[in-house]
Simulated scan of single mutants.
Amino acid sequence: MTGLTRRSAFGLAAATLAAPWAARAEATQLAIATGTTGGVYYPLGGGLANLLSRNIPGMSATVEVTGGSVANNQLLGAGRVGMIFTQVDASVDAVNGQDRFRGRPVKVRAIAVLYTNRMQVVTTAAAGITKLTDLKGKRVSTGAPGSATEVMAFRLIEAAGLDRDKDFRARERLSPAESTNAIKDGKLDAYFFVSGVPTSAITDLGASPGITLKMIDHAEYVPKITEKYGPVYFPEVIPAGTYPGQTTDNHQMSVANILAVLDTMPNELVTKILEVTWNGRQELAQVHAEGRNFTLDKQKTAAAGVPWHPAAEAFWKAQGATL
C-alpha cells in the first residue's frame, strides 16, 4: 500500500500515474504504522485514524499492525505508509543511516511528541530473577523482529555485561502477547517490552491466577547506554500498582515517542493532521490512558530527537510551545 495516495476525478488509473502529493485530489488515503496488538501504538493509532477520517474531508486513515518502530521507519522510507508511531531512538538511527538503517537513511521528520515509552523487563516471582544479570542461563524474549524493543533490549543487555547470543538458555523474538502466553505455559522465564503503561499483555500476566508479577529494575544502566548511543534515554519509575501484583516501584529506562512523516509530506496536510489531532486529544485519552500525556510542554526539539517537519514546527510555535 502506498503511504499516502490521492485519487483524482480522472479515476484510479490516472491516480496511479500521478505523484503521491497530487495537487488536485478528492480523497486522501493515509496508512498509519503502529505496532503489535499487545502494545499501546495499535489502539492509540486506531483512535487517531478514526479521528482523522471523521474530521478531515476526503481522508480515509487506516492502521497497520507492524513489528514496531524499526519496521515503521523502514516502511515509511519505502513509501508503504504515510505516518508512523515510533520511538525516538529508532528514528535517530533511521535519519543517520546507522544500525538497522546502515546505508539506507530515511528522511524522517517529527510532527508531534507523544508519551514516554518505558522499557519493561517482565518476569514472575517463580523464575527467581531479581536483577538483570540473573537472566544469564534463562529463557528470554527480546521483542518482535523489527521492533524498537529489540534494539533497546540489546543495548540494555550489552550494558549489563551479557552476551545476547551466548548467555541465554534460549532467546526468542516474540510479541508481548506471545511472551505472556509463553510464560504462562512454562516456556519462557522473562521478556523485554517497550511501551506506554499500562500495556495489556503485562496486565494480563499480572492478573493470571497463580502468577506473581515481577518487574526488574535496570535504571542503573542508563548512563552507560547514553554514553555510547546518545542522550535519547532517561530513567523513570513505573509506580507500584500500575499492574496487578506489582508491589514495588520499577526503576527503568525510558524513551520518547513521536508521530513522524517523511520530509516530503505537504505543509498543508501536516497542519490539518496536527489541528485535528491536537483538538481531539481528549478523545485519544479515552482510547488509552497514555493519550493524556500528549501535552504542549512535551513539544521540545530535544525530545523529538529528529528534525521537525517545517509545518509541525510552525504549528507548535503557534500553539505557544517553547521548542
Rank of each mutant, 00 (worst) to 15 (best):
T271A: 12
N293W: 09
D263L: 14
K107E: 15
M253N: 12
E26Y: 08
V306E: 13
V194D: 08
T295H: 00
S208H: 13
F10Q: 13
E26C: 03
K187V: 10
S147N: 03
G186M: 09
N279E: 15
R7I: 12
L51P: 13
A170I: 03
A177L: 11
G291T: 09
S141D: 06
L76D: 02
A110G: 15
M215V: 05
A207L: 06
T295P: 00
Q74F: 03
P310D: 09
A112K: 08
A127L: 04
L30Y: 03
P20M: 11
S200H: 02
F154P: 08
T247Q: 05
R118M: 10
E268L: 10
I84W: 01
V113Y: 07
A23T: 11
W308D: 13
F10Y: 08
L17R: 15
T62I: 13
A311F: 05
Q286K: 15
L30C: 07
M59C: 14
A201Y: 03
L323W: 07
D185T: 11
L188Y: 02
N181S: 14
A19D: 13
D263F: 10
A94M: 04
Q74W: 02
S53E: 06
V88I: 07
L162W: 02
A61Q: 07
G39D: 13
L44D: 00
P145H: 02
V140C: 03
I258S: 13
T37L: 06
R118W: 10
L4E: 10
K214I: 00
Q98C: 11
I84H: 00
G305M: 08
I157C: 12
L162H: 13
R80H: 01
R173S: 11
D204R: 14
V232L: 10
H218G: 15
T37W: 02
K300H: 04
T247W: 04
S208M: 06
Q98L: 11
V232N: 15
L114F: 05
L51S: 09
W316A: 10
A201I: 06
T86E: 03
N96F: 02
A190S: 09
A14I: 00
Q120N: 08
Q319S: 02
F101T: 13
T5C: 09
Q299S: 08
E172I: 00
N267T: 09
T247E: 15
S175F: 04
T248G: 06
G280Y: 05
A13C: 04
L188N: 11
G305R: 12
A190G: 07
P57G: 01
G38V: 02
G206L: 07
F168G: 04
F101V: 11
V261P: 13
F193R: 00
T301D: 14
D204M: 08
I273R: 01
N267A: 15
A23M: 05
A177F: 01
Q319W: 03
K300I: 01
A31H: 14
K224F: 13
M59N: 04
P223E: 01
V306S: 12
Q252I: 09
Q246R: 11
R100F: 12
N117K: 09
V194N: 11
G291C: 07
A14V: 06
R139K: 15
A289W: 01
M152Y: 00
Q299W: 06
K300Y: 04
R169V: 00
